[in-house]
């Protein structure tokens, strides 16, 4: 891949970190919010857990590839880390209201 020779190492490492860690944070937030939300809507706990994780492993490869395809790296980090944190916080809020 001739293109790889022109890539700066910092950019590459940051992209990889965004895809792996940012992606993980985002998917964690998704699983948490979806579990808490579905449970709040009356779905049995383990059903909510299973459905969320099935969707999670379809979501993760998608955001992983988007992290490399997106033009601006700052936006990738903002969406993945920011979105992940927001969803995680929302999940805790839902839990707080239920317990």
């Amino acid at each position: 891949m001739s293109v790889s020779h022109t890539l700066s190492p910092t950019l590459v490492v940051s992209r990889i970190a965004a895809a792996l860690l940012g992606g993980y944070a985002f998917v964690w937030g998704f699983v948490a919010l979806s579990m808490a939300g579905l449970f709040a809507l009356g779905m049995p706990f383990h059903d909510a857990e299973h459905l969320s994780s099935i969707l999670a492993f379809l979501l993760y490869p998608a955001v992983f590839l988007w992290a490399f395809a997106a033009r601006r790296l700052g936006r990738v980090w903002a969406v993945l880390a920011g979105g992940g944190a927001a969803m995680t916080a929302a999940a805790s809020l839902v839990q707080h209201l239920l317990v």
């Binding site: 579990m35 706990f45 857990e49 969320s52 999670a56 999940a91 839990q95």
Partner: peptide, 26 residues
């Protein structure tokens, strides 16, 4: 894909960490 789903509890242990209180309630 299904390999990941089988071990979802290891990769995303949400129900045993962040949502443990909800799990206990259930």
């Amino acid at each position: 894909f299904t390999g990941l789903v089988i071990f979802a509890g290891i990769y995303f242990p949400v129900g045993h960490t962040q949502l443990e209180p909800l799990h206990e309630l259930h």
